[in-house]
């Protein structure tokens, strides 16, 4: 049941009984007042009950979570998903066996799922939301290995005095490398090319 129409002495009372019937709270519904009602004289003569229509709001986070779950199940991967919203960013952390199939080579599949989840998320949301997917702490591990790679390549650039181009990466991965080398004053970093082939270059100063 997604919506009910209820009556009550006042609008508030009508809403209250609707919430009870839907077994939810005020935050998860949309209320449409059909009739505000009338108190009448002494509350007896000419009184008219208030009528409201209460609809369950579609929670974009729940909807996106369900989408992810369905897709993973179709990929024969059994996952548990934990969703958390922080302002306009929504974090989904996935865990389970065979999670490698969901991540893919260098996070390719995970990034694709992230794109799709974001669309589903915004399909039902009035505010623009950003989906961030993580699987078994993959993002954290990737960040560490990117920083390691950045430092390693920076040393090589300094040693050989020649610039090095990296492979194409999504913007947030490039950002990790840019900021990792921001304080290294013997090299400079910049990105060239257009998405999705935009890649980073580390050059000597």
């Amino acid at each position: 049941m997604n919506q009910v129409t209820t009556t009550g002495q006042t609008v508030d009372k009508a809403i209250e009984s609707a919430l009870k019937e839907l077994n939810t709270t005020r935050d998860y519904v949309e209320v449409k007042i059909i009739d505000e009602g009338k108190k009448g004289v002494f509350g007896i003569f000419g009184s008219r009950p208030a009528i409201v229509k209460v609809m369950l709001k579609i929670d974009p986070v729940e909807e996106a979570k369900q989408f992810l779950k369905d897709v993973c199940r179709q990929m024969d991967v059994d996952v548990t998903i934990h969703a958390e919203r922080d302002g306009k960013r929504v974090f989904f952390s996935l865990s389970g066996e065979n999670i490698g199939n969901i991540i893919g080579k260098r996070g390719k599949t995970l990034n694709a799922l992230q794109t799709l989840t974001q669309i589903v998320l915004n399909h039902h949301s009035s505010q623009f939301l950003i989906a961030i997917l993580d699987a078994e702490n993959y993002r954290k591990r990737r960040e560490e290995s990117l920083i390691q790679l950045a430092n390693h390549l920076a040393r090589k650039v300094i040693r050989e005095g020649k610039q090095i181009s990296l492979e194409p990466m999504p913007s947030y991965e490039r950002k990790i490398i840019h900021s990792a080398l921001a304080n290294e004053d013997r090299v400079t970093t910049y990105s060239v090319g257009t998405e999705p082939n935009r890649h980073l270059v580390i050059a000597p100063k």
Partner: peptide, 13 residues
């Protein structure tokens, strides 16, 4: 972008 993402997931599977 979306077509690419769909293909990535489908091809992975």
């Amino acid at each position: 972008r979306v077509a690419k993402a769909i293909r990535t997931v489908v091809y992975a599977h």
